[in-house]
């Protein structure tokens, strides 16, 4: 049976990349779902660029405090050991290399790991937020995205045509069809969604994919 992963499953797969003890920042949109899928037995410290380290899950309606939100405007729950700080310190932390992993959304990723995730045609007033700082400052950049646009156009491309967030910053791409590593020698297809073959995924990808010698189906 051929299927595409839904957003929850993409987030679940991304969260498996979080090592025990990692400091993780989650970008706007789909990446935020990762907070709900921390692998059992691991502790992850979520950092939010509006000035918070070590928050818990998204808050239920009854306990929502709009003065304790993540950077996607969602109220979150407190955890022992959490801290608050101002935006200046939040970005010192980010640019200074203290974030182990950032998960970002994307409109496009190129074959050399360029990222375009903030501007799109017809929406001249959207901004990059903290994306540019996170993309250059985090030790590891994971992108979660849909493999193609609504119109079926590839989002993993030879060269980004949308405005860039940063050059050569992406380490791993997780889509509804595949897990792809950005390596020195190009894009390596590591895992496929259930029922999909490497040539079928290549057909929906503009950049060249090299199937890994251990290519496997995504384990869920």
């Amino acid at each position: 049976m051929k299927s595409r992963l839904d957003e929850q499953t993409i987030a679940l797969r991304a969260a498996r990349e979080f090592a025990d003890g990692a400091v993780v920042n989650l970008g706007y949109g789909m990446p935020g779902l990762c907070a709900n899928f921390i692998p059992e037995g691991r502790t992850v410290y979520f950092q939010s660029e509006n000035g918070m380290l070590g928050y818990g899950s998204l808050a239920a309606d009854a306990e929502k405090d709009y003065e304790m939100i993540n950077a996607s405007d969602q109220p979150v729950t407190p955890l022992p050991g959490m801290s608050f700080f101002d935006s200046g310190i939040a970005f010192d932390m980010i640019r200074g290399g203290h974030i182990d992993v950032v998960v970002l959304g994307a409109y496009q990723v190129s074959e050399n790991g360029d990222l375009a995730n903030w501007g799109r045609p017809g929406r001249g007033a959207t901004g990059m937020g903290g994306g540019m700082d996170l993309a250059v400052g985090a030790k590891r950049v994971i992108v979660t995205m849909l493999h193609t646009t609504k119109e079926g156009e590839p989002r993993i491309v030879k060269n980004c045509t949308y405005p860039l967030t940063a050059r050569q910053c992406v380490n791993l791409i997780i889509t509804d069809l595949a897990v792809i590593e950005v390596a020195e020698r190009g894009l390596i297809l590591k895992e496929t969604a259930p029922g999909w073959t490497a040539p079928e995924i290549q057909d929906l990808t503009e950049a060249k994919l090299t199937p890994d010698k251990d290519l496997k189906e995504i384990e869920l």
Binding site: E49, D86, S87, G88, A90, F91, I94, R95, M128, G129, G130, G131, M132, D133, A135, V136, G137, A166
Partner: peptide, 23 residues
């Protein structure tokens, strides 16, 4: 960029003439 915004304001606050960033 958001970090650049924060730092530009901190420079204004602290009497500094600017800074270099990779963002």
């Amino acid at each position: 960029p958001q970090g650049t915004l924060a730092e530009r304001i901190r420079c204004g606050a602290g009497g500094l003439g600017g800074f270099y960033t990779r963002a």
